[in-house]
């Protein structure tokens, strides 16, 4: 064990006096400047072999810790389970969430393209609207321009759609088993409603172009298609044990 020593305290005092001297009186700084090397010297001497260390005697027997005794009553298996309880016991694999997201995303895209066809604006219209999130030049585009095919917009639209679909699907997969009872109700109806509400609120910020032109009925319909499809895929997947999946 290291021996008790006051040199660290003296060093701290020296540093403080050095600082205090700047504010009050140079004499204090001088005192500090004397103390610092003095304390450092004393400290370093403590570190030399053969100094500053000692072997501590054991404390008297009555002050030693009592030996830890095994618990008198063996714990029942049920109790043993409870105190290490990990909930939920079984979850859907994360991959099921992603798969659900992809399936839902395809369904959503079909609805969106159907909207383009039905409204007579062509299938590229919705793709361009989605891509407008990343493409400022669409902000001033006319409807006719937006109906044209645009390779860059197609790439952006696909990337955004794929990422958001898979990501939201992953969230579904993780959250669904933690929600009580009717997972399809949560996944198919409540979640799309919340999601649509959030998108409705933020659309003006995220994608003003789409905000101006979106047809909310079709939009909501596509959200429900996504939610129900994703929920179904997740529900149909085989549940895995938490411990097996390495989640705790």
């Amino acid at each position: 064990m290291p021996l008790a020593t006051a040199w660290p305290m003296v060093l701290a005092l020296g540093i403080t006096l050095l600082a205090a001297g700047c504010l009050t009186n140079w004499a204090m700084s001088i005192a500090g400047a004397v103390l610092v090397p003095l304390a450092l010297g004393g400290w370093i001497r403590e570190l030399l072999p053969g100094r500053g260390e000692f072997e501590h005697a054991r404390v008297p027997a009555h002050e030693r810790p009592r030996a830890v005794v095994p618990a008198a009553v063996a714990i029942a298996p049920a109790a043993g389970f409870v105190h290490r309880m990990r909930l939920p016991e079984k979850v859907h694999p994360y991959s099921a969430g992603v798969r659900g997201g992809i399936v839902g995303g395809i369904g959503m895209a079909v609805v969106a393209l159907a909207y383009g066809v039905v409204s007579g604006r062509g299938i590229w219209y919705t793709v361009n609207l989605l891509a407008a999130m990343l493409m400022p030049r669409f902000a001033t585009a006319t409807d006719a321009e937006l109906a044209q095919f645009d390779a860059l917009a197609l790439v952006f639209g696909l990337v955004i759609h794929a990422l958001v679909s898979a990501g939201a699907g992953l969230c579904y997969g993780v959250l669904l088993p933690t929600l009580p009872r009717w997972p399809v109700l949560w996944g198919g109806i409540v979640a799309p409603l919340l999601w649509t509400g959030a998108v409705y609120g933020f659309m003006g910020v995220l994608n003003p172009v789409m905000n101006r032109r979106v047809d909310w009925q079709w939009f909501i319909a596509s959200q429900f298609v996504y939610g129900i499809l994703a929920g179904l895929v997740v529900m149909r997947s085989e549940k895995v044990s938490v411990r097996g999946a390495g989640i705790s």
Binding site: P2, L3, A4, A6, M9, F54, E55, A57, R58
Partner: peptide, 28 residues
């Protein structure tokens, strides 16, 4: 760092455990 049954190896006195100076110089 060793702990022994008696402090035989070195005759260093155990550090005082009470009083102001013990607290000022402690490294525990």
């Amino acid at each position: 760092m060793a702990v022994v049954e008696q402090s035989a190896s070195r005759a260093a006195p155990l550090p005082a455990t009470a009083g102001l100076s013990a607290w000022v110089s402690t490294v525990d």
